[in-house]
């Protein structure tokens, strides 16, 4: 079993509780995730959908593990993009760990496919979102690039 994965780490000056809320609560994700929000049943086995501002479902899956504000594991499928939505589900693991006055956020995203356009696409998107949620929590402002849903997608 040779999983294909990427691992991103960022340090954010905040508390695990605030970061957890910023990653899951609609009023926060709407600010830095291009207007998107989670329609989710946040418990083990619960379903989640990432809603696009125009009402479409962007991505979806199940909650595999949840331990707020420390660990969240999601089964993650694309729903709306032709070419990506037929791929088998990926797995996203988010771990929060307090380090001094900051929180270390580790994001691991993996698939069983050796070649995965979905994982490539996610690996491009996450750095923007991580930088933007960091900016939101540390300065009160998300990054300009991630504020609005891109036109024509």
């Amino acid at each position: 079993m040779s999983a294909n994965r990427f691992v991103y780490v960022t340090y954010i000056r905040t508390t695990p509780e605030k970061l957890w809320q910023a990653l899951t609560a609609p009023e926060f994700t709407r600010q830095y995730w291009a207007g998107c929000w989670f329609d989710a049943d946040w418990r083990e086995g619960g379903g989640w959908k990432l809603m696009i501002p125009d009402g479409r479902i962007g991505d979806a899956g199940e909650v595999l593990e949840i331990d707020p504000p420390r660990r969240l594991v999601l089964r993650w499928k694309n729903v709306f993009l032709p070419g990506l939505r037929d791929e088998p589900a990926t797995r996203c693991t988010i771990t929060l760990e307090p380090v001094g006055a900051s929180v270390r956020l580790m994001l691991e995203h993996e698939t069983e496919l050796a070649r995965s356009p979905l994982l490539d696409s996610l690996s491009q998107g996450w750095p923007h979102l991580l930088a933007s949620v960091k900016s939101l929590l540390e300065t009160g402002e998300p990054l300009e690039v991630t504020r609005h849903w891109p036109e024509g997608i």
């Binding site: 991103y8 960022t10 923007h128 930088a131 690039v145």
Partner: peptide, 17 residues
Amino acid sequence: FLNPVPIHEIAERWLGK
């Protein structure tokens, strides 16, 4: 694993969209 986040933060700091 290569972690591009710090390089991304540097780019965000000095490059507008």
